[in-house]
Write a protein that binds this DNA or RNA. Structure first.
Lengths: 330, 330
DNA sequence: TTGTATGCGTTATCAA
DNA sequence: TTGATAACGCATACAA
């Protein structure tokens, strides 16, 4: 059995209250007793029980992270950054891989509630607004509008779409296709698409939108892409994400299409992984670190002042573009 | 304020005990009261407080996951699988990214203890045996020996090293190099290296071991690899992991070395990510899903019977080899 | 079939 | 500067 507070008290020859005071640096204690207590704690290898502590209305210092998963490098990196930041501030993370499953996400929400988490960072969005509404819990969201009083952090998806399209145009493309996640109301991808759409129109070109679902297997995706490449005469492709872009590159190579001479490609996300292991890919870089930092900062503010009105509901962080070999050779 | 058990009792016109009985399906209750209670719970949107519940000596259903991080696709996928399995069994996961930092790992251990987790799955290994020793907690480990009574799960790293080397030999390589993490006692990489070493000797070839540290930036790694490729006449390279293999491919391409004609390459890990987005890479596939399942199963058994002697300390799961275009063209 | 009383390990209130 | 005591929300032994 693990040592408890009263054991420490007994060993140190003081009252439980005094031990609690030492632990929490609360009220007045003489150095002598403080030392005695510290010694006893060492000897017994004492660890305060967070559960009992939290039961008393203190914070749990637990934060729930609801994301689709961590096997996708983008979410892996984002979750890792968030975890790091939270750790620095004394929070622990309960990881919830909601996949793309409404039921699981709902179940997770209930669980987090039962575990008295101090707050939630939501990056998976299978559920509607109402489900998140009824929680009296501090919540911040990544990349999607959940509810009136939930702040949203995202990167400038629209501008990303604009820049990617424009870069292809500037590099000489006149048949620019958009390949990626199908449109779905409220999805951040939509803004990337809007950016593409508006730019294409502004440039006087023709829209070519090819939905390729996220949930499809890469095998199916690559077949769809090959079909696209062989049946259409695209000279530039704006991809909704880097992984799709990798598939496009792969498909092009298999078809003997030269990149960037015959076909130029842009991705989206710009994870460290992509930057390091696919430096050839031109892509829109999301500021993962800043996103993580802001999410955490907003959540902590919300935890500290739950009733404070939101000064700002939406935070859009700037993206940057990496121009590389899938656009230009030099 | 959230509704508590006594609120439900009041609303339903019964005693708290009865409500508790309904929640836990304990003892006898009439259908009528059961319904009343359920109704009251619905109305108040009641969620039992896990903390209070666990304080009573019940399990927390919390499991700590200590891994280097989740941005590396291999760990990302493994953690995701583990989380899925644990979720199915009603456990929640506290995610601990220990990076390669002793202090952080130690700090996490204390934290997990304070949070009364039911058990720990350890996949980061900065700390020595003794630090894990003093925990009276069920622990299972991935890929490294921690302590006498901690079961270890790993894939057959040795055989992986053997197979990779042999495959290169069979494909015609006679100057086979080993590139990867430097030797470090207790590291699983060591077994991959041993497999390489033994096979090279058996084949009567010369050993060529080139340590490239994990912690180095890919930039530095790639420079080291380029140097290796230009100064030595390697015709086959066994890499400790797929990411290193990607860098070797990249370096070879930049140097105009033809794969697989002039140089053949094998990786290690075989994540879904690599299989999908780099199908050209020949690699040793670790059975991520089985590893996750076994880790969870062993932990649960340990939680259920903490004092049971270990039937088996070490579990080595079979790997398989994917032979692809970095070895042979057809 | 249901209710009362007590305790889990800690913190907060009050008194000494 | 310290200690006794009552909570926190729930589950269990015991009684009814």
């Amino acid at each position: 059995m693990r040592a408890k507070l009263s054991d420490v008290a007994k060993k140190a020859g003081v009252s439980p209250t005094t031990v609690s005071r030492v632990i929490n640096n609360y009220g007045y204690i003489s150095d002598k007793t403080r030392n005695k207590v510290h010694e006893a704690m060492k000897e017994l290898n004492y660890q305060p029980n967070s559960l009992a502590r939290s039961l008393h209305g203190k914070k749990t210092n637990l934060v729930g992270l609801i994301f689709p998963g961590v096997s996708n490098p983008f979410f892996g990196e984002l979750v890792e950054e968030i975890e790091n930041k939270l750790f620095e501030d004394g929070y622990k993370v309960i990881l919830c891989n909601a996949a793309y499953n409404k039921e699981k996400e709902r179940s997770y929400l209930r669980m987090l509630l039962a575990n008295q988490v101090d707050g939630i960072i939501a990056g998976a969005h299978n559920l509607g607004i109402d489900e998140y509404q009824e929680f009296g819990l501090p919540i911040v969201s990544f990349d999607r509008s959940l509810s009136e009083n939930v702040p949203i952090v995202s990167s400038d998806n629209y501008k990303g779409g604009v820049i990617a399209t424009q870069e292809l145009y500037d590099a000489g493309c006149r048949h620019i296709y958009f390949v990626g996640n199908p449109v779905q109301k409220g999805n951040p991808t939509d803004h990337r698409l809007s950016g593409y759409r508006d730019t294409i129109k502004k440039l006087g070109l023709t829209l070519h939108i090819h939905p390729v679902s996220f949930s499809e297997t890469p095998m199916l995706k690559i077949m769809a892409i090959k079909q696209l490449l062989s049946e259409h005469k695209a000279d530039g492709i704006v991809c909704t994400d880097d992984l799709t872009a990798l598939l496009v590159i792969q498909a092009a190579q298999e078809l003997g299409i030269n990149i960037p001479e015959q076909l130029k490609i842009t991705g989206f996300d710009g994870t460290k992984f992509i930057q390091q292991y696919h430096p050839e890919l031109s892509t829109v870089v999301q500021p993962t670190k800043d996103i993580a930092a802001l999410l955490v900062k907003l959540l902590e503010r919300r935890i500290a002042h739950p009733d404070e009105d939101l000064k700002q509901k939406s935070y859009i962080l700037p993206i940057r573009f990496i121009k590389s070999k899938t656009i230009s050779d030099n």
